[in-house]
């Protein structure tokens, strides 16, 4: 798994690539959750190179969504491969995570008031 983060205006863009399973989910947790506690409340996740996710990874996204709900923030996921999208759907996360085909659409959603 590789993670990179970049600030664009008031949006934190997080690029998650490779495999997120029990072997790597701790690293995702360490990279994604503390910034939310430190005030990042608009998060755009680029999933274009996310190849695999198990419940260990889905759990980190759930934790992020819970934190953002409390903070009245928002997380948006973009450019998912079909199998990854299937995982979010079966987990029942589709309502909590708006999923967009492109980063542009996702960014537009985050910029909405």
């Amino acid at each position: 798994m590789q993670i990179s983060k970049q600030k664009e205006g008031n949006v934190l863009v997080v690029k998650v690539a490779g495999r997120v399973d029990a072997a790597t989910s701790k690293a995702l947790e360490t990279e994604m959750l503390p910034p939310i506690d430190n005030g990042e409340h608009k998060i755009l996740v680029d999933c274009s190179n996310l190849e695999y996710i198990s419940s260990a990874g889905l759990r980190i996204f759930l934790m992020a969504a819970k934190k953002l709900k409390m903070a009245r923030g928002k997380i948006v996921l973009c450019s998912m491969l079909p199998p990854i999208k299937t995982m979010f759907e079966i987990a029942g996360f589709s309502a909590a995570f708006p999923i967009f085909n492109t980063m542009e659409e996702g960014e537009k959603e985050l910029r909405k008031k």
Partner: peptide, 18 residues
Amino acid sequence: DVTRQIEERPIGGLGIHL
């Protein structure tokens, strides 16, 4: 229960649900 609101969803149990 996948129909529950995100703030009420427990963190565990997802693996067996899948």
